[in-house]
Design a protein around this nucleic acid. Structure first.
Lengths: 356, 356
DNA sequence: AGCAAAATTTGAACCGGTTCAAGATCTATG
DNA sequence: CATAGATCTTGAACCGGTTCAAATTTTGCT
């Protein structure tokens, strides 16, 4: 195995010396060749070639430029999350697209444990962060603040105004979902929500909803109820079940919901993932969707188009969110940029009028 | 919108001045706090806090350290490819896992057009590259060489010895596939290959195979034939069809293959993707797999487990390849590191004895 | 108190470039 | 031929840290 000595790489200074010019001129040869006399330019280029210099090292350029031309996408999940989760993937597609168009690089920063995350956020070579907030958003935000770089949080409801955010209108989206079902004639509902408070699940009261630390879940409930009330439905009777978006909590919520003497004919699921888990449960129980019960999801991940049945859902323009986040960093670094993007109801096969 | 002035961020120098110590001491406070007298340490920390200094800027650290603690994953596809392609995703999962474990960051570098790619490779702030070679591998390799950083190419057959490579044994893997079919009793085969030469497709002669610029395709053919010959099968009669891994070229190859008076009972597909396209075609034609014809893929992407029927395939340890590539950069920078990883036959539902 | 060893702190050099005011050289014109 | 103006080149300052030999301060002991 030939050992190559990467350390001895020649520097601009070496080139300048070899060509008998100043460092400044040598620098110009590579960055503004037009202002250097042709003869000198060629001499420098030749010298560079002869000593094996391939152009300015980005490390040096970066320091003096003060920027690295890359943005970091940060999350609390392990790095692999970016490539595994459907929502994350579509989002990243949008982010990468916008970065590509701008010649900006992307660094993935994350870490399973708190300490490493702090280090990673503090030491990432980036010009700004896009915070992919799931759990642990607060920590992530605090760390980003410390880093004193522009950052934008994604779709994360927070009361914190002093922060850039690109998000969707959860209330509006949720109310679209509920309105759709109500218009189909449904009158008995149940809500399958994401966590209101980290780690909690089970039947939730409206107090808990209002005390939510995750405003996304809270807003979606509000949106649902707003629409239902417009149809004269007593939302006090609509059960809300908090889940961890996993099989166990979703299924046990459904057990409880359908143990009722007058079970709902329509389910409002706060995410597609929850909806898919519900579809599994219905299938296992021999409950037919949408004949026996309708369900609408939220997010509009690609899989929602191909599930059985295809899922009626509220589509977030996920990729667009990614693109806008990049633009927010690139074009609005330094300001507090807040932007809300519209959602869209996508009617597919999981909703139909109630059996009556 | 409050405009925050990110430019005025205080530097280590400011802190030192404010605390009345030298820059060197201030630096030590953050990097080797133990060697600084407690009283001084606290004075510096206090000064830092009071002027809003949050710790050393990684840009500066990086320059003097000479390394950035991140590796670049480069490909010629647009960035979004990393999040879209199943093979890429599994690979990235492996890469990220290894990086995570090492506290190393990941930068994605790519570009659709040649010029930008060159710029991106030259200016990426990384300590080394993993080259995700698909098309355009040569350019990518040339660029990486120029950058004079350690790099390792992935699963890319090349005659070039002066380069680190982590790859699988294509000959061995392919021969496993063929042997499996031969052992089931098949005697009439056809090969659906990937490109031998960029952009070409259609029936291929053995000359073309041997002249392949993509050695992966070539080696797989060699592996197939090696195994078949061991069963006394005359490989001269086994048709090889080069495809672009897309619907059109795969389907037209199959049209031609099955137009024969004695069509094959077994198909050797050089990638799962090709195999999936073939499954589509068989389904459309009412040809039953594996009753009428058997097919084995190559790669073992996750989808192969859930296709209809589930695909018998040669599983590459894709994630492991990613992990090893990271280790190669991290542990063997500077040497020419070459490593071959074993494949594994995964028997599922797309192969059965021939109808006879 | 006196002195050597141990513990800290300093200051300059360096990492690899970019930038720009000032100086040097060249060109064109009267 | 002199000179203003245009064109190049230089050299020093700067980007934000780290490092280490040398200088300084403390500490431990007699």
């Amino acid at each position: 195995m030939a050992k190559i000595d990467f350390a001895k790489a020649p520097t601009l200074h070496d080139v300048a010396k070899a060509a008998g010019v100043s460092k400044g001129t040598a620098s110009n040869v590579f960055n503004r060749p037009d202002i250097v006399r042709e003869e000198v330019r060629e001499r420098v280029l030749e010298a560079a070639k002869s000593i094996g210099y391939r152009g300015p090292d980005p490390k040096g350029r970066m320091l003096s430029a003060g920027k690295v031309n890359a943005i970091g996408v940060a999350t609390v999940e392990p790095l692999a999350y970016f490539f595994a989760d459907p929502y994350a993937r579509v989002l990243m597609a949008g982010i990468t697209e916008a970065c590509d168009a701008n010649g900006t690089g992307i660094s993935l920063v994350s870490a399973a444990n708190e300490e490493e995350l702090a280090w990673n956020v503090h030491s990432a070579l980036v010009d700004g962060f896009i915070l992919f907030c799931l759990k642990g958003a607060d920590r992530l935000i605090a760390l980003s603040r410390e880093r004193q770089l522009p950052f934008v949080a994604l779709d994360f409801g927070t009361k914190d105004d002093a922060m850039s955010v690109v998000s969707i209108d959860n209330i509006e989206g949720a109310s679209r979902a509920a309105r759709h079902l109500a218009e189909l004639g449904h009158r008995r509902f149940a809500v399958l929500s994401m966590e209101f408070i980290e780690g909690s699940y089970g039947r939730a009261t409206m107090e808990r909803v209002n005390a939510a630390s995750y405003s996304t879940s809270r807003d979606r409930v509000r949106g649902y109820f707003e629409a239902l009330e417009a149809f004269g439905i007593d939302t006090g009777n609509v059960p809300i079940f908090e889940t961890l978006c996993d099989r166990e909590t979703v299924h046990s919520a459904l057990e409880e919901i359908f143990a009722s003497p007058s079970p709902p004919t329509a389910i409002l699921a706060q995410s597609d993932r929850i909806a898919f888990l519900a579809l599994d449960w219905f299938k296992a129980k021999g409950i037919s969707v949408p004949a026996d019960v309708s369900i609408v999801g939220f997010d509009g991940v690609p899989e929602s188009a191909t599930s059985t049945p295809p899922l009626t859902t509220i589509r977030q323009p996920i990729a667009e969110i990614g693109r806008r986040a990049v633009r927010a960093i690139l074009d609005h670094a330094g300001e507090t940029w807040r932007e809300k993007i519209d959602t869209e109801l996508v009617v597919r096969g999981s909703t139909a009028p109630p059996r009556d």
